[in-house]
């Protein structure tokens, strides 16, 4: 638990850095703890409780037996420690299958988003003076302001017609909805890469394609990580889109499967919480392991020549 506050506060820092762009990176780190920042720290710690308490309850409940879950206080520690909840949830929801589908959808989304957004951003940022590219950037940005539910009905029809009322369609739509924000991040980062690097590569004999793969894409790595994590979180945690698009319940992703079996958990809180925890775990684990890397990437800022 001790790592949690740090995690939350770094999250805030990450967002600040993202908004400030790479050029501002590191200014936060340089600030001394003392004076005003104690107030800030205290407020952040308070805010973090809104996340941490439910998380604690979830974990505590998941490891309780059914009797304990019903009788005891939600905040009490599990005694005895039981994994029956997990066992039951595993078989009840056919966890491996839902997990695999979720994994495929998410992997497809992450991969597709990074590649497509990097392509688009490179093309846009290097052809900025051309109207077509500039407008396509604004077009992509505009998509950020249109929420999925508004388009849901039309998209359900369209994916149905195209035979995409399955996880593949969900993946495709996830990529589309991630594209706006990812292109925004990538283009900002691309502007900080000196043109001389590309000119040098061109003189060294590289075609545009080779320049992209040998030079630009590796340099984008820190931002790809950020984009990838956003795509991962959005895709893994999404409930609405798969539930509406995918027609076959046996092909549903984890969050939807959870909800389908909600009723069957009845008042077996330990089973339902264990099930939530299993669904949540990958996202948390991925974040814990990658956030340090993302932070390093974001704060590293412009590439020095």
């Amino acid at each position: 638990m001790s790592t949690q506050p740090a995690l939350v506060s770094e999250n805030v820092q990450a967002i600040e850095n993202l908004e400030g762009g790479p050029a501002r990176g590191g200014s936060f780190r340089g600030r001394r703890i003392g004076g005003d920042s104690w107030t800030t720290t205290f407020l952040l710690a308070l805010c973090s409780l809104t996340v941490l308490i439910p998380l604690y309850v979830t974990i505590a409940m998941a490891f309780k037996t059914t009797e304990q879950a019903v009788e005891g206080s939600a905040f009490s520690l599990p005694a005895p420690f039981s994994i029956d909840g997990f066992r039951e949830a595993w078989s009840l929801t056919d966890f491996p299958r839902a997990f695999t589908i979720s994994l495929l959808v998410t992997a497809g989304t992450v991969f597709g988003t990074i590649i497509l957004a990097a392509f688009a951003s490179y093309a846009i940022s290097r052809n900025w003076e051309r109207r077509l590219f500039r407008y396509s950037f604004f077009y992509l940005l505009a998509a950020m302001f249109i929420p999925f539910p508004v388009l849901a009905l039309a998209q359900i029809r369209l994916t149905g017609l195209a035979g995409l009322d399955n996880p593949a369609g969900v993946t495709l739509l996830h990529i589309m909805f991630q594209l706006s924000f990812s292109v925004l991040l990538f283009t900002a980062f691309l502007r900080s890469i000196p043109m001389e690097l590309e000119e040098s590569a061109r003189i060294d004999g590289a075609s545009t394609w080779q320049t992209f793969w040998h030079l630009i894409f590796p340099l984008l790595a820190p931002m790809s990580a950020t984009v990838g994590i956003f795509a991962f979180l959005a895709s893994w945690n999404d409930f609405m889109m798969p539930s509406l698009i995918t027609s076959d319940p046996s092909l549903q992703t984890l969050p939807v499967v959870q909800s389908i079996f909600q009723t069957q958990f009845s008042n077996n809180y330990n089973v339902s919480f264990a099930s939530y925890l299993m669904a949540m775990a990958p996202a948390i684990i991925v974040y814990i392991f990658t956030q340090r890397w993302v932070m390093a990437g974001v704060t590293q800022g412009a590439v020095k020549g």
């Binding site: 040098s200 060294d204 020095k304 020549g305």
Partner: peptide, 20 residues
């Protein structure tokens, strides 16, 4: 001709070394 077909090598002011 495009730069790659000219058989020239260039040293830039900021060196333009590939950082990765």
């Amino acid at each position: 001709l495009s730069p790659k077909d000219r058989d020239v090598a260039m040293v830039f002011q900021n060196y333009a070394l590939y950082p990765h």
